[in-house]
């Protein structure tokens, strides 16, 4: 259950360790805010939250350079329909499921909200963590955001890629909160990734951080989920889920198939 006394980072870590204790991989789902439309977004949020261990909600941005075409298109439609940051926060605040929530937002909408006060507003809207794909920690804004997140108990989740140098990786991991987001390959979200190429990268990350590790970028199939069982705590699925929602499909059967694949019996 959600506890008001726990920080966002603690709630995220608790959700991921619960999955580990139950000998299964955690399912981390990503949704584009305001889709499939402004009305149905709240229902979609609830339906997906009930089927995953951790839910990432994307605030649409006009120039999503870290996203592939499927998510970029969905974000564009959401903005065209008039979806706003306030509306996203209203929807997350109203969510009844105890699933921890992570906001995915580019720098500029957060800057418009005010970096100093944004984390407190997210916390009020029951958001636990934050991913900012275009804001490196070693920038003035990065430092400001890190302080504001600490004050409000929001976990600023850091991304690590296979190309991140060892020296920088140590600095990133020092700042990581909640979980470490392992980007499995170069590129944007969406295109399919060969997970076998990432196993060494994931293993070295596991040795370097006490935090849970969630893998993402290019994960979409149950086979990939099975191949990562036991290698990471969490499996992030974004584009494949977004595509189903954009097509007007019920995302629940797909999420259930991933959950099944992530289940593993103790060895």
């Amino acid at each position: 259950m959600k506890s008001a006394s726990l920080s966002g980072a603690a709630r995220i870590e608790a959700a991921l360790s619960r999955a580990r204790n139950e000998h299964r991989g955690a399912l981390v789902a990503y949704l584009v805010g305001g889709r499939p439309d402004r009305e149905a977004f709240r229902e979609t949020l609830a339906a997906v939250a009930a089927r995953c261990d951790l839910l990432e909600v994307g605030m649409p941005f006009s120039d999503p350079v870290a996203d592939g075409p499927a998510i970029a298109r969905a974000a564009g439609r959401s903005l065209a329909s008039g979806f706003t940051f306030d509306e996203l926060l209203g929807a997350t605040a109203a969510l009844e499921a105890p699933t921890p929530l992570v906001l995915f937002s580019y720098s500029n909408p957060l800057l418009a909200l005010g970096l100093e006060r944004a984390p407190a507003r997210l916390a009020e809207a029951r958001i636990d963590g934050l991913v900012v794909p275009d804001l490196p920690f070693d920038t003035p804004e990065g430092e400001e955001l890190a302080h504001a997140c600490e004050r409000s108990g929001i976990a600023w989740i850091q991304l690590v890629t296979p190309l991140t140098t060892a020296r920088r990786r140590a600095r990133v991991l020092e700042r990581a909160r909640g979980f470490v987001y392992a980007v499995l390959r170069a590129g944007t979200t969406g295109a399919e990734t060969d997970t076998s190429a990432s196993l060494e990268f994931l293993a070295s990350l596991r040795r370097e951080t006490p935090l849970p590790v969630c893998a993402g970028f290019g994960l979409r199939t149950a086979d990939q989920a099975r191949s990562l069982r036991g290698r990471v705590e969490g499996f992030v699925v974004g584009t494949a889920l977004v595509e189903r929602i954009e097509r007007g499909e019920d995302p629940r059967p797909y999420l259930d198939s991933l959950r099944t694949a992530l289940h593993t019996s103790p060895r």
């Binding site: 120039d63 500029n108 909408p109 800057l111 418009a112």
Partner: peptide, 21 residues
């Protein structure tokens, strides 16, 4: 107004939500 786009902090034509116009 001040914003971040295309890798730099500079001035930007944007709305109150930080969406580039």
């Amino acid at each position: 107004r001040v914003g971040i786009l295309h890798g730099a902090r500079s001035l930007l034509l944007q709305d109150d939500e930080g969406q580039v116009q």
